[in-house]
Design a protein around this nucleic acid. Structure first.
Lengths: 122, 122
DNA sequence: GTCTAATAACTAAAAAATTAGTTAAAAAGT
DNA sequence: ACTTTTTAACTAATTTTTTAGTTATTAGAC
């Protein structure tokens, strides 16, 4: 699976968040939720067409309006990304990643213990 | 801190791996270890100079030979990257990342338990 | 010392990514 | 019906990233 560029990933995040969306809805989201300047229609339109080309999106046409929806789930993409990341930075060991998180205080032992208990119940 | 591009990150990985390196050593590594075509000197030279500009590398000059070394450690960079990743994909919760890893079988409960015990000893 | 190979610095070219203009068609509002 | 707004498609322009050519200098081999 191809890696997303920064701008592409941002668009994907929005569509994952909103679900199936039109170009207009994406622009609204950027303006209202992200409080940025409303980008030109053509900018977003080009982005989603590239994402479609790369196989991340597909669309349904309602008349002239296209509604874009993800072909790759956020879960699937994050799985790939994390896999590569663990590969590159933790010699492929998820264990080491967890150790690292604990050392870096992104995770404390109490939380981890609780989590483990919960996971064991399932 | 700036995000690295794909090619930039590859160079950084090599320098993190090798320690302080000259352009020639990097080219050797790419040829011998990575079994790729030996890139032109100028290509690698440009990359390391850009990385220097971005603050990821510095160099020591021995005569005309420059030895480049990291200013940003692999640990520091991975910390930033993972932080952003957890932010974007796990709502900032490292807990959820760990759950995800377990669900996706990158991590099994036995290992996690052992790890937890080890961490608690420290 | 002379020659060869490696080097840094500079520059340029190519490729990829990003942003945006234009047009024609459709939809929505009046 | 007429006007305005939204849209897709196409295209172009810009910016960023990546790769590589050229030149002058240095180091090392002989």
């Amino acid at each position: 699976m191809k890696q997303l560029t920064k701008a592409e990933e941002e668009i994907m995040q929005i569509i994952w968040e909103l679900g199936p969306s039109t170009v207009g809805q994406i622009r609204d989201y950027i303006e209202v939720q992200m409080k940025q300047v409303r980008p030109p229609h053509s900018t977003i339109s080009t982005m989603v067409r590239i994402l479609e080309e790369k196989g991340f999106l597909d669309h349904k046409a309602y008349g002239r309006t296209h509604e874009y929806f993800p072909l790759v789930s956020k879960e699937h993409y994050s799985k790939q990304t994390i896999h590569k990341f663990v590969e590159d930075y933790f010699e492929g060991s998820a264990n080491r990643l967890v150790s690292f998180l604990v050392k870096e205080k992104d995770l404390n032992l109490k939380d981890l213990t609780e989590l483990l208990n919960k996971l064991e119940e399932e």
